[in-house]
């Protein structure tokens, strides 16, 4: 910000002051600016993914809407609230660190970590659900279900409150769920079929984009749905979903590591009104991760959900 003034006559070394700085003000300014620049690079890091999302969504809006509708928006919303609470406890941690209140700091850091863990737990639950239903976009990483085998023989996790779907237990009328090689499976074509039919009836309508009319059809312009081609586009949605939420979860895990260190420091009573910048910097990181989720939630879980009104 400014050229700093310093006097070499009276060098007063405060505790926690590193050798290259003249005073605590300069140190805090440097550290805080460094953290913000790091966050700026984080914005660009996630920004690359958001660009990929933007381009792919603009190419295949209906496939993304179908994929979005399949995610559990309730769990996503719950996770958003969990993160918001953890952001509040983090903000209060900084508040109490400035006051030098050790017990409140320790308690609030523990709470923040608990909410962070809750978030990861819910995320893990969601991932497992995707695994069980063949929605992980990489072949071989889904639960393997052989034709006509009883549920108990299936490899992999079955979530509480859910029975493993086997070929013999499938809903009447639906095709049995078989996935012997653990490949990506997609079974919901009602929405795109509906739009395709309308587009065929009204060739000048805007039910599908021009690109979609070409890329979902059996042959360009035929407006007859090719399920395999559509499935590939939904797979791209789930790929982006997993990369974005996975990278976000990785940031959460790193955040929990930082919190563990912070907890130890706070427990030792390191922070007070004079020296609390580690708490503040960790807080910035934690809030940033929260902000990323604030955008991921609507983009991945919510957009396209209004198609549910079609009752398909």
């Amino acid at each position: 910000m400014s050229a700093h003034s310093h006097s070499d006559k009276f060098v007063y070394h405060e505790p926690g002051l590193q050798h290259q700085f003249d005073d605590m003000g300069q140190q805090e300014e440097s550290v805080s600016l460094g953290m913000w620049l790091f966050l700026a690079q984080e914005i660009m890091f996630f920004g690359g993914l958001f660009t990929a999302y933007l381009v792919m969504r603009s190419k295949y809006p209906l496939a993304f809407a179908s994929g979005s509708n399949h995610l559990d928006a309730f769990l996503g919303g719950a996770n958003t609230l969990v993160l918001i609470v953890s952001s509040l406890t983090m903000a209060l941690t900084v508040y109490y660190a400035q006051k030098g209140n050790r017990n409140m700091q320790v308690g609030l850091i523990v709470l923040t970590m608990l909410f962070g863990l809750t978030f990861l737990g819910i995320k893990a639950y969601e991932y497992t659900d995707k695994y069980n239903h063949g929605l992980v976009p990489m072949a071989g990483l889904n639960r393997r279900v052989k034709a006509d085998s009883p549920a108990s023989e299936h490899v992999g996790l079955v979530l509480p409150g859910e029975t493993a779907v086997s070929a013999s237990e499938a809903k009447p009328g639906a095709e049995p769920y078989v996935n012997p090689h653990g490949e990506f499976q997609w079974r919901e074509y009602e929405l795109v079929q509906h739009m395709m039919d309308k587009q065929r009836a009204e060739p000048n309508g805007h039910y599908l984009t021009l690109n979609e009319q070409l890329t979902y059809s059996t042959s360009p312009g035929s407006l007859v749905l090719d399920k395999d081609k559509f499935r590939d586009k939904v797979r791209i949605f789930f790929y982006i979903y997993f990369v974005m939420t996975g990278l976000h979860a990785l940031h959460m895990i790193i955040g929990l590591g930082i919190m563990t260190w912070l907890l130890w420091m706070a427990f030792k009573g390191t922070f007070n009104a004079e020296y609390f910048s580690p708490v503040e910097m960790s807080g910035l990181y934690w809030h940033f991760v929260d902000i990323v989720w604030i955008f991921l939630f609507p983009l991945l879980y919510l957009l396209g959900r209004h198609y549910e009104h079609l009752g398909l």
């Binding site: 600016l33 913000w36 966050l39 914005i43 660009m44 952001s87």
Partner: peptide, 29 residues
């Protein structure tokens, strides 16, 4: 969140600039 939890509201102009600048660059992209 930025203004209040992350204290941008009370931060030096440089912090404003790095936060807004990064978003500006994202917009360019």
């Amino acid at each position: 969140v930025g203004l209040f939890f992350m204290h941008v509201r009370w931060s030096p102009r440089l912090v404003w600039m790095s936060a807004v600048g990064a978003f500006f660059w994202l917009t360019i992209m």
